[in-house]
Simulated scan of single mutants.
Amino acid sequence: MKRRLLGLCLFLGVCGSAAASNQQRELDYAASLRQIADMGHAVWLNAGGQRFLALFTEAEKTDNSQAVIILHDMGEHPDQQPVAHGLRTVLPRHNWTTLSIQLPLREIGAGRQDYYGLFDEAQGRIQAAVAYLRAQGAKDIAVVGYGVGAAMAAYALSRDPGGLAAFAAISLPLPESTLPQVQIGEFIKNIALPFLDIYAEFDLPEVVDTARRRRMLGKDNPVYRQIRINGENHAYRHDPMMLIKRIYSWLALSLGPN
């Protein structure tokens, strides 16, 4: 009997830790990101009683009325090269204030499935980011997510789309899972915002192989658009400016200039 109880306790302990974010990794990233010398400055936000880092960069020529929340890929940080860094530093030159936030992390080596339990925590951080941008004067707020960050954004929009005006998903996967947090196909069908689904020609299989399915799921949304970036893979290192240009051009068409 004692052995069975011990086994149950161990099982519950493992299950509980599976949904816990790795705060030490976040602090390690924060320590290095506070030393960044280029555009923007670090701010600390709070969600669910936990502080997390974000990089805030104001638009160069206008006020902060149009803003973008940037969500990095799995296991990364708000200045992830080249995608998150490029977006957060280039979009302000095109009149978009940016807030690139630290998403919850798992331990080094964790896989995509290990991140599914963090989606609720990510939703809280997105809501905190919206509140921060509102306090800075933002009226139109878009969210741009990359990889797992895009999946987290889709989940957050499925739960509470309030406060967000557009969604750009970079390399959005459709995971094979029964977990409610990652029913991305169902989320796509219900997103009524301007929606850009952008991916690379040589992206991950769960992105490339599901591109047509995502397009069919979004067909009832008149402001859904899908774009493939030729010659790139999931990292977008060959010509990251092409990706960034596609996004700021789409933002201008979808939400208009200030």
Score class of each variant (00 low, 15 high):
residue 99 L to C: 08
residue 206 E to S: 09
residue 32 S to I: 06
residue 87 L to A: 08
residue 197 D to I: 04
residue 202 F to E: 07
residue 248 Y to L: 04
residue 19 A to D: 02
residue 158 S to K: 13
residue 24 Q to M: 10
residue 15 C to Y: 06
residue 39 M to L: 15
residue 217 L to H: 11
residue 126 I to C: 03
residue 211 A to W: 05
residue 97 T to L: 09
residue 51 R to D: 11
residue 127 Q to G: 02
residue 203 D to M: 06
residue 207 V to E: 06
residue 138 A to E: 11
residue 225 R to Y: 12
residue 92 P to H: 11
residue 96 W to E: 13
residue 173 P to Y: 00
residue 258 N to C: 14
residue 86 G to E: 07
residue 221 N to H: 09
residue 129 A to Y: 03
residue 152 M to R: 02
residue 210 T to G: 04
residue 122 A to T: 01
residue 253 L to M: 15
residue 127 Q to H: 04
residue 27 L to W: 09
residue 43 V to D: 12
residue 130 V to T: 10
residue 128 A to N: 04
residue 25 R to W: 03
residue 123 Q to W: 10
residue 190 N to D: 12
residue 23 Q to D: 12
residue 164 L to W: 07
residue 19 A to I: 05
residue 232 E to D: 05
residue 76 E to S: 15
residue 174 L to K: 01
residue 36 I to F: 11
residue 167 F to S: 02
residue 89 T to F: 00
residue 226 Q to A: 15
residue 97 T to Q: 05
residue 202 F to S: 15
residue 64 N to M: 06
residue 58 E to A: 13
residue 248 Y to V: 03
residue 224 Y to S: 12
residue 141 I to E: 08
residue 37 A to T: 08
residue 41 H to I: 01
residue 39 M to V: 05
residue 92 P to W: 10
residue 95 N to P: 02
residue 232 E to I: 00
residue 234 H to L: 01
residue 166 A to L: 13
residue 194 P to C: 09
residue 258 N to A: 15
residue 202 F to V: 07
residue 163 G to C: 06
residue 9 C to T: 13
residue 176 E to Y: 14
residue 115 Y to P: 01
residue 228 R to V: 10
residue 79 D to M: 14
residue 167 F to N: 03
residue 144 V to Y: 13
residue 7 G to R: 05
residue 225 R to I: 09
residue 18 A to R: 00
residue 17 S to D: 11
residue 87 L to V: 05
residue 20 A to V: 09
residue 56 F to W: 08
residue 186 E to Q: 10
residue 107 E to W: 01
residue 198 I to C: 11
residue 250 W to M: 03
residue 183 Q to E: 15
residue 117 G to D: 01
residue 48 G to T: 07
residue 114 D to W: 03
residue 233 N to V: 02
residue 4 R to W: 06
residue 12 L to W: 08
residue 37 A to R: 11
residue 124 G to N: 05
residue 75 G to R: 00
residue 252 A to L: 12
residue 69 I to Q: 14
residue 117 G to T: 00
residue 231 G to I: 08
residue 246 R to Y: 13
residue 186 E to G: 13
residue 182 V to E: 00
residue 140 D to E: 14
residue 65 S to G: 04
residue 256 G to Q: 14
residue 203 D to V: 04
residue 222 P to A: 06
residue 52 F to V: 03
residue 257 P to K: 15
residue 245 K to M: 05
residue 195 F to A: 09
residue 99 L to Y: 06
residue 125 R to N: 00
residue 205 P to M: 03
residue 128 A to V: 06
residue 198 I to R: 10
residue 234 H to C: 00
residue 134 R to F: 04
residue 34 R to M: 10
residue 156 A to C: 14
residue 162 G to D: 10
residue 246 R to P: 05
residue 226 Q to P: 12
residue 66 Q to C: 09
residue 105 L to G: 02
residue 54 A to Y: 06
residue 99 L to Q: 10
residue 26 E to K: 09
residue 77 H to G: 01
residue 210 T to I: 07
residue 105 L to M: 07
residue 208 V to Y: 02
residue 129 A to P: 09
